[in-house]
Simulated scan of single mutants.
Amino acid sequence: MKSKTVLITGASSGIGEAFAHECANKGANLILVARSQVGLAEVSKKIQEKYQVQVALIAMDLSVEGAAQELFQQTKDKELDVDILINNAGFGKWGRFEDFDLRTYKGMLQLNINTLTELCYLYLGGMKIKRSGGIINVASGAALMPVPYAGVYSASKSYVLNFSEALYNELEETGVTVTCLCPSGTKTNFAAVANNEVSVDEKQYETAEHVAKVGLHGFLANRSYVLSGKQKMLLSILPRFLSRSKLLKLSGKIFKKIVNNKKIGLMEGR
Rank of each mutant, 00 (worst) to 15 (best):
N222R: 12
F219R: 00
G175W: 06
G175C: 07
S224C: 12
H210K: 15
T186E: 07
E197H: 14
A194P: 11
L220S: 06
N169H: 13
A212N: 07
A208P: 08
T186Y: 07
T186N: 10
Y159F: 12
V178S: 02
L216Q: 05
Q204I: 05
S164R: 00
K213A: 12
E173L: 08
G229P: 06
N196R: 13
S158P: 02
V178P: 00
G229H: 03
N162G: 11
K203L: 14
A212H: 03
N195G: 12
H210L: 13
N162T: 15
Y225R: 06
K203H: 08
V160A: 06
L227M: 14
Q204W: 01
S199I: 14
A192P: 00
V211W: 01
V178I: 13
D201F: 11
G185F: 03
G185C: 03
N196Q: 14
E165Q: 14
L227C: 12
V160M: 05
P183F: 03
G215W: 00
K187V: 10
P183V: 07
V160F: 01
D201W: 11
E165S: 08
S164H: 02
L161W: 05
A166L: 09
A194F: 12
T188H: 09
L161N: 03
E197S: 14
Y168E: 04
V226R: 07
L227H: 05
V193D: 03
L227F: 12
K187F: 08
